[in-house]
Amino acid sequence: RKNTNKRGVSLKTQELYALVFATRYLDMFTDFISLYNTVMKLIFLSSSFSIVWYMRRHKLVRRSYDKDHDTFRHQFLVLPCLILALLIHEQFTFKEVMWTFSIYLEAVAILPQLVLLQRTRNIDNLTGQYVFFLGAYRSLYILNWIYRYFTEPHYVHWITWISGFVQTLLYADFFYYYLNSWKNNVKLTLPA
């Protein structure tokens, strides 16, 4: 709220994340996994939708949001993911295809944000940290998948694993430049 220049944050990516959670948590009220699982789903949904609402509605933020540079077209990500989900899924039911779509979409949802960072020369710290921790969170999943693969029989989820791996790869070069800027204590800039 303090630094109202939402220059670095991509509204496109925020909207894609809201779509990811909306299509992934359709089973929230039908399949109870655990209190933690339900609470976190509510947190993910409320936080992603409130960020989108805030960036769209709030006059102060909307004015400073960098819409001229945040021009990545959603449909170039949403449509291929939807088609892929219709072709490759674990079960051909509405909920399962929606869930698979959300898995594919989450893998590429960060792209508008990374493109925006490349376009805005000076990346402010908050945005850089935000993207870094988004990527770090995702890479921790890979550790979790390895652990579960070796401790749980029949724990095989190719769709989740491959999408999660692709998503982490997309962050790889960002991590490289981010950690370099942190190590050399210089401003984070991404190559054009």
């Binding site: 089973d27 399949d31 996994i33 655990s34 699982n37 976190m40 789903k41 993910f44 674990e90 079960q91 039911t93 399962e96 869930w99 999943y141 979790n144 989740t160």
Partner: peptide
């Protein structure tokens, strides 16, 4: 019927 695929991860 088909067993429902359970997704227990966020």
């Amino acid at each position: 019927g088909l067993e429902t695929v359970e997704h227990d991860e966020l």
